[in-house]
Design a binder for these strands. Structure first.
Lengths: 190, 190
DNA sequence: TGGAGACTGGACCGACTGGTCTATATATGT
DNA sequence: ACATATATAGACCAGTCGGTCCAGTCTCCA
């Protein structure tokens, strides 16, 4: 597995990866319905056949994979933020600042990669469930850090939800205003 | 009963009204790109000619009008919530409870009517600006109530932003979980 | 060396998209 | 009564949608 990774760095990224990354990026900025397969395929430099080889159920499958991939990335940001932090609140602060930077790097437009990709309508219950699952993963990660800093079980749960809500809401406002400082100001509200 | 009843009993309303209401409802649940003109027209029981008579620029025009209309309704909910409240925080609590009820009335799926309608992609700068404008209106309304209860100028601004962020983020989590209690728990975080 | 499975490339499809256009109906003012 | 503006009705259009299909190419192992 590790040898494969080393060789992989030199090679062009496998098609499946390119599809997932392109999907994650495009869905995040224009939403699931805002991205056509043609756009997506052109962005990923892949033909249609490959899409339906790697994702037999087409667009919905790809969206699920893209959201999962994006979520994994976000989880890593959380881990990094809390890794060297001396306290929960300082970890949270670092996280908000990292997200502000991320916001600035995405044309100040992109939405939450999970909701933009998966909040598509009531007809797609699986999407909603998956979004719930991914959010739960994020919440659990933050809760664990709170526990690590000595919070009670109940308190940790509360803290993680609170931070999640602030970040989601803050991101929305930052988006409308095109202003990442909304994110940087979030820790003051904790 | 709130005047923000988007699920309207299709009365003999003028065509333009029906178009706006239908657009607001459909965009809110499936997003701007998730709704086709045919769906929309069928829902509003109006022919295509009427749409382009009342909204010469078609779908984008209608979306703007629908978002404005939805925002006005929301503003009324805010006003109602704070009208008879003995304090800012009790007004905020009432507001959160009203929104929870609203959430339950919309299949627990619908998103923020403004962002779902107007956060469409970077190619549509006017939409983003209008969303900013509508959000600003909401923020101003809440800030005025805070001032009315004796908050300082600076404090009132902070309070309104804080409440806005909590509601936006809370709604997102409520959506993923299909659980309106997230909204009812929001005041504890203020 | 050859055969099998994984993967690519893209032509093609019916359904549907947002939008245009013209003919007709309805209301209003004189 | 007529003229005028406003509004309705829907056929029609080119373009795009997500999806299917299969011939071709690659990779790997017998």
């Amino acid at each position: 597995m590790s040898s494969y990774d080393m060789i992989d760095a030199e090679k062009p990224r496998p098609t499946k990866d390119r599809l997932i990354r392109s999907a994650a990026e495009l869905f995040r900025t224009r939403g699931y319905h805002g991205v056509g397969l043609n756009d997506l395929l052109a962005h990923a430099k892949a033909p249609k056949g490959s899409l339906y080889h790697h994702f037999p159920n087409g667009k919905p499958d790809l969206a699920m994979a893209a959201a999962t991939w994006a979520s994994d990335g976000l989880l890593r940001v959380v881990a990094e933020s809390f890794a060297g932090a001396p306290s929960f609140s300082e970890g949270a602060t670092t996280l908000c600042h990292k997200l502000a930077k991320l916001f600035d790097m995405t044309n100040q437009w992109d939405g939450c990669p999970i909701s933009a990709t998966l909040f598509v309508g009531p007809e797609n219950a699986e999407f909603r469930k998956h979004a719930d699952h991914l959010y739960a993963g994020w919440l659990a990660e933050v809760r664990d850090h709170a526990l690590r800093f000595g919070a009670s079980e109940e308190d940790a749960l509360k803290k993680s939800e609170h931070l999640f809500i602030l970040i989601q809401g803050g991101w929305q406002l930052a988006r409308a205003r095109s202003d990442s400082n909304v994110m940087r100001d979030l820790p003051n509200k904790l």
